[in-house]
Design a protein around this nucleic acid. Sequence first.
DNA 1: AGTCTGACTGGAG
DNA 2: TCTCCAGCCAGAC
Length: 128
Amino acid sequence: MRFFERKFTKLARQHQMSNMEDLNFYESVYALAREIPVGRVTSYGALARALGRAGAARMVGYAMGYAGKATPPVPAHRVLNSQGKLSGKAAFGHPMLMQELLEAEGIQVRNDRVVDFKTVFWDPLKEL
DNA sequence: AGTCTGACTGGAG
DNA sequence: TCTCCAGCCAGAC
């Protein structure tokens, strides 16, 4: 059984979803993204790998584009590209909003890049 | 069913 | 460190 299936069954319960058959890819991305702790960040690729879809990083990013409409809320600002850059900032209402949300959680941002990306990086495969 | 499209990624130069 | 490039894959048409 893949990591996704083992871990997500638990997440599905926590989010009061009957079973993972009801979840499409986007919803599973959102459920996993909601597990990112405050003050930590992860990458599109890391989420894709954790969901058993290594290589589907682009779809994770595409899914985040619709995250604003998801309930419960998805902390989309905690998802960055593999270099720690705020590649999705344009999708937030105000161009600086993504950075402001991160800074409000104690994460330093400089030149569209998270400072100390490696130390605040959250890998669902290792920490969930 | 075929084509196009990215909030991506890792490697090469 | 940066840019370019080919591979990536689920949705939207």
